[in-house]
Design a protein around this nucleic acid. Structure first.
Lengths: 249, 249
DNA sequence: CGTAGGTTTGAAGTCAATCAACAGTTGTGG
DNA sequence: CCACAACTGTTGATTGACTTCAAACCTACG
């Protein structure tokens, strides 16, 4: 088992630097991120702005509370948690971002913004500076449109989350969350009934305004009812229809 | 009493048409809405796009669920409630918009969007078509920046709302809400310890994920404790400091 | 002036939190 | 590579904040 772990680690370490240097034109996620809707020539222009960062490892911060953020980040691989602290210094989890998602849309209006972004797994991001992007939007109207679209979507997502917090039961919340993650994997062309979800139960609990105990109890029930299991970061959906119904969609 | 009411109504009906035709340059709210940060010449350009709509009365919809929205709306006076329906057809209140606020930022990315906007009081709005505004942002970079700023702020506001739903007690939620409204009035240069707030308790309850009964109970308590009263649409803040503390800020 | 919808107040009920104790997992330093 | 410490997850018993239900009272509006 230990040997297996080593091999995987080495594999990951070696593979990623090759993989993540891929440019926008040949990136499989271009239809989700800023490049969506752009023609091939424009994508090349966008690509010139992109700074492909070295891999982040679990616990590494992409940015922190109070920092003056001056870039967007598009996720190429891995998973990022965005969180803040409330007035009593308790953590508040705002969301989890997967490959194809864009971070930093919330920070445009603020010199110093109140959010933190941390990697939950080995993660690769493309950094796109605000000011350079802004210049480019002037010559590429489609790019400006896509930026506005992404922001608009972020507003709607955030409202959906509020609505979930307000009007769903603990069971519905958790079913909805797993269903949402599954949908994300599906739309990205990955296997959506069986996937790795490297999120701690306590972080999900926080995000859904539940306690880890409640999450644990409900997952046990879902497993018993043969709807879905989530054991050691591995999600298995046994009954997609039942999950969807339970999510109240 | 009837006579008094009549006089007020006539006064309102006559006054507003005169007032709301004011152009952007001389509008007292220009520092809050799309005109913020623009020079005088640019404001004149923006002003040409603006369609100042006739007054909306209580219950009139600015837009509805499923409609193809093609404009932003800046509120000049009055109050608008934005809401939707969940999967069980129960109303979900997403927010209340006051003079200076801009609506429709959520609808940019969607051909048909899931929100409704209804006037809770006599309300005047300026309509700004997406496509014309988009054209103008190309020649006025400051306008584009302001649009992005407003969207970014909307994301942050929405996250704050989620955080409130998740981590505050019923008392804190209500204290926070009243404090927030007061702050809005303050920043708009109105009296902020005494103001008309034409929102039903049941709508606030929905927005804060409480029941009208709970809201009623807490307001009774706040009144007894001489912190704030909210009786028949009139808010009176007796102890601003206590309210702020209670809001947990 | 009557009525539908909104608000208040009280009593009873409930969902999920809290508290507690233990089991499993991860990561680190010797 | 193991041992131990710190963290994460599970399960049960108890509690509490807010909801639900119910009935009376307002008040706004045609």
């Amino acid at each position: 088992m230990n040997l297996f772990y080593r091999i995987v680690r080495v594999f990951v370490m070696q593979k990623i630097p090759v993989d993540y240097k891929i440019n926008c034109s040949s990136c499989g996620l271009k239809s989700l991120c800023l490049a969506n809707g752009l023609n091939d020539l424009d994508i090349v222009q966008l690509d010139k702005l992109v700074d492909r960062k070295a891999s982040l490892y679990k616990g590494d911060h992409l940015y922190s509370d109070g920092q003056h953020l001056k870039s967007f980040f598009a996720i190429k691989g891995g998973i990022i948690k965005v969180y803040s602290f409330d007035s009593e210094n308790k953590e508040v989890v705002h969301g989890f971002y997967l490959p194809g998602d864009v971070l930093g849309l919330d920070s445009l209006a603020y010199n110093s913004h109140p959010f933190n972004a941390v990697a939950l797994d080995v993660t690769n991001v493309c950094e796109i500076p605000f000011n350079k992007l802004e210049q480019l939007t002037k010559t590429i109207p489609d790019l400006n449109n896509q930026l506005l679209n992404l922001m608009s979507q972020e507003i709607v997502n955030s409202r959906r989350h509020s609505s979930l917090l307000a009007h769903k039961t603990a069971e519905q919340k958790l079913a909805f969350f797993i269903y949402l993650m599954s949908s994300k994997f599906k739309s990205r062309g990955y296997l959506h009934t069986q996937f790795r979800l490297n999120i701690l139960h306590k972080d999900v609990a926080n995000y859904l305004n539940l306690t880890p105990e409640t999450v644990s109890r409900i997952l046990t029930k879902f497993n018993k009812d043969e709807i879905v299991s989530w054991i050691k970061k591995e999600v298995n959906i046994f009954n997609e229809e039942a999950l969807k119904n339970m999510a109240g969609e």
